[in-house]
Amino acid sequence: MANPQNPATVTQRSSKVSPTSAASMASIAPVAGWLVPGLGHFIQRRYIRGSLLMLAVFVMFFAGLGMQGKVYQFNTGDLLDILGFIGDVGAGLLYFVARAMDWGGGNIHRAVADYGTKYIVVAGLLNVIAAVDAYHIAIGKKP
């Protein structure tokens, strides 16, 4: 039975991948990784990495909501609000679900709610980093 960690097996496996499927994976993996944290790694059979990334982003996002953090809406007002929205959107479907369910109203009376807001933004930014990593795996820049 072939050992998946064996470099010879990896070479065999990568040589069987057609350029077309590699190119499509390079398009699909980052989008999938953005929409669902860790999915970009899952579809490339990096299950442990995908699970850990998914866990990290989910924990940050829902901990932020639990701390009554704010989920930013699209806006053209204050620069920090615009940047907050961009960061939040990085969480992909989590962001859209939170908006659809009207979660993340924020609470200015609790100091820890401000931490929650930052948690949600950083969850989105970390998810973008994970999606870029999925892209690097897809193009063969990273094993």
């Binding site: 990495r49 850990l52 990334l53 866990l55 990290a56 982003v57 924990v59 940050m60 901990a63 909501l65 639990g66 701390m67 009554q68 820890v112 931490y115 930052k118 948690y119 950083v122 969850a123 970390l126 980093i129 994970a130 870029v132 990593d133």
Partner: peptide, 26 residues
Amino acid sequence: MTFELSHYSAALLFALCASTVFGITQ
């Protein structure tokens, strides 16, 4: 669903999640 974290435990949870992603991706 709300929960209370102290300042330091919030910072540690942040550190744990961020360092997990940094470690895997970098």
